[in-house]
Amino acid sequence: MGDHLARAEDFENKAEKKLSGWGLFGSKFEDAADLFDKSANSYKLAKSWDKAGSTYIKLANCNLKLESKHEAAQAYVDAAHCYKKTNINESVSCLDNAVNIFCEIGRLSMAARYLKEIAELYESEQNIEQAVVYYEKSADFYENEEVNTSANQCKQKVAQFSAQLEQYQRSIEIYEDIARQSLSNNLLKYGVKGHLLNAGICQLCKDDVIAITNALERYQDLDPTFSGTREYRLLADIAAAIDEEDVGKFTEVIKEFDSMTPLDSWKTTLLLRVKEKLKAKELEEDDLT
């Protein structure tokens, strides 16, 4: 380990010397870049992630001087991957730089990929608002490049987090849009009822029985097979329970569905919100009587 560290520092010093000296036709930047690359690799072997990251940034700067933009962007990505282990903010900053360069040279699919990576970093840090922003950007880029599956994955993340942030209408629009797209594809049509269920749960959170009923009718028009599914029945029965302000029925309906298809944590969270509202209504009714 110490051996790797010593070699890394040696390479870095040589590179710095090269940069401060004279070079013919920019060859000093080429030589320095080569040395910085070796130095960064040695730092990685020594598990000195911060130093490896900062060395990759120096490498990126050399590549920018040489007008090798693709290599510069890749160096920023390598720096980000090193910083990921120690400093998330630095990692995000490096990925942002990489994305900007990829956009400049027209590599939009690469830019989309790293925007998604930034979003994942924010998600791991529980910074949901920023995660949503970057997932949205990533989805946009993927759509421009017609990488629809990846775009939809990012959109689903946006919808999921938007619902958690109580931006239900936004979630509904995304899920309905994905369902609409999926219907015209033989491979994706089987997932439609899942998307419509998610949209329906978001509708329930809005606490508007008429809107829920209208949405269910719309979903039936969208996919005629939906009305025969357990997902449709779950939504319809919950809507009825909300309309009747019957917490018992609400619980029974959900338990019955969950006994067959266990609800994931996202659905559970949203349905608990619905139940809380329903209980509050019930208590209000009791107070009035």
Binding site: P224, T225, G228, R230, Y232, R233, D237
Partner: peptide
Amino acid sequence: TSAPKGQSKL
């Protein structure tokens, strides 16, 4: 084809 009828447990 008729849409599959939902479970009639309820």
